[in-house]
Nucleic acid binder design. Structure first.
Lengths: 210, 210
DNA sequence: GTAAATTTTAAACAAGTGTTTGAATTTGTG
DNA sequence: CACAAATTCAAACACTTGTTTAAAATTTAC
């Protein structure tokens, strides 16, 4: 065994390249070169490129989801009749699990969000299917929680507003390099994932409440 | 000359396929087959695939921008000291120019927005550069107008919130087929571009104002 | 109507893609 | 150490990509 095994090195390289160039514009040769492994090892360890994409996502979810569930449980445990669940707190519950991803490798939090975004438009829905098959229950639970903090909004309305929110998040992360470019030249500010998320939450809260 | 000339047929086919599959996942063979023209005619009429992408965007902008400028002028002409420019009105000013695109072909309004979104992440910024080179002045003017309706918000803050808004719009349009799929099965509602935009504007207004 | 310019066409090009192969090498186990 | 299993490797596979070519067809202009 090397210090870092081949499988992990492929995942690390793929994660970064997918986030930058997208799934279809990242070749296995790019990935294996970056990872310093043989071209054929992707198919040996993962079977196919499609499976590799799913494996990258799966690694995020294995870290993100348990952490998120714990945090959500903590939050709901604190609720009483007099102390109702609050939208702002609910949204902040996502921050820690998200930033926890950076323990996988630097920028993983951002890469994860970019991947979610690309999953909607680039992979004919097989990533979306993967998520709803494996975490559908949790997702319903989350939807439930949002609904309870916004009791006056219809399900349809909530559905759309949550997607607007997801869009604001995902687009900002996907266009990140472009935005950072503009932002830094125009305003000369450093942009970290945390920085953006903290600007985003108030925006989303206002939009969701309307 | 045929009823519709080759150049236009290529543009029409490219527009649709780009919106669905993205730039890099749409081949010239797909486009020329869909357009019922010879493969080589793309390079003959446009020079390269990259130029074709730009030509598709240019066609949108030639319709969208003049209409938008007219509408914005109408809006500012109505302003007096007592009748200040309003954020909600400003946003609604974008709707007509946007839907005017549907005269190019059905769904062009949506395709335009999808293209803007993809332009941020898929083309290494050459579409963004094209826009700011050709319409930079108008864009600054628009930024100006937003700033005047939100005098209490810093330039940096406004910059980010406008991109959140753009993200909400663009992501929703890009993931449209996916969302429509979910939405229809879950809520059985028809989703038109207008429908989405009308749901989106209040969301954005609230988020921008905060 | 004929010559010139424009456009269309089929074929081929080089380059890049994911995947498979079978031999070489490394690793784990008795 | 020796054997077997797991892994790595270079090479080739079949296929798709954007682009170019040069001949054929069409349109335009005189």
């Amino acid at each position: 065994m090397k210090k870092i095994d081949t499988k992990t090195r492929i995942l690390n390289a793929a994660e970064q390249l997918f986030a930058i160039y997208g799934f279809n514009n990242t070749s296995l040769r790019q990935i294996t070169t970056e990872a310093n492994v043989n071209l054929a090892s992707v198919n040996y360890h993962f079977g196919s490129k499609k499976s590799l994409i799913q494996a990258v996502l799966a690694r995020y979810l294995q870290v993100f989801m348990p952490t998120l569930i714990t945090e959500l449980d903590n939050l709901t445990a604190q609720q009483t009749n007099t102390n109702q669940l609050n939208l702002n707190d609910l949204l902040h519950t996502f921050v820690k699990p998200l930033l926890a991803l950076n323990q996988i490798s630097a920028q993983s939090a951002r890469n994860f969000m970019v991947m979610i975004g690309r999953g909607y438009s680039e992979t004919q829905g097989h990533l979306r299917r993967y998520i709803s098959e494996n975490y559908g229950e949790t997702l319903n639970h989350i939807m439930q929680l949002f609904a309870s903090t916004l009791p006056n909004i219809s399900r349809t309305e909530l559905f759309w507003r949550l997607h607007f929110s997801l869009g604001a998040l995902v687009f900002t992360m996907t266009s990140d390099s472009a935005l950072a470019e503009i932002s830094e030249s125009d305003f000369s500010e450093k942009v970290s994932t945390e920085y953006i998320v903290n600007k985003l939450i108030p925006f989303i809260v206002a939009g969701l409440k309307n």
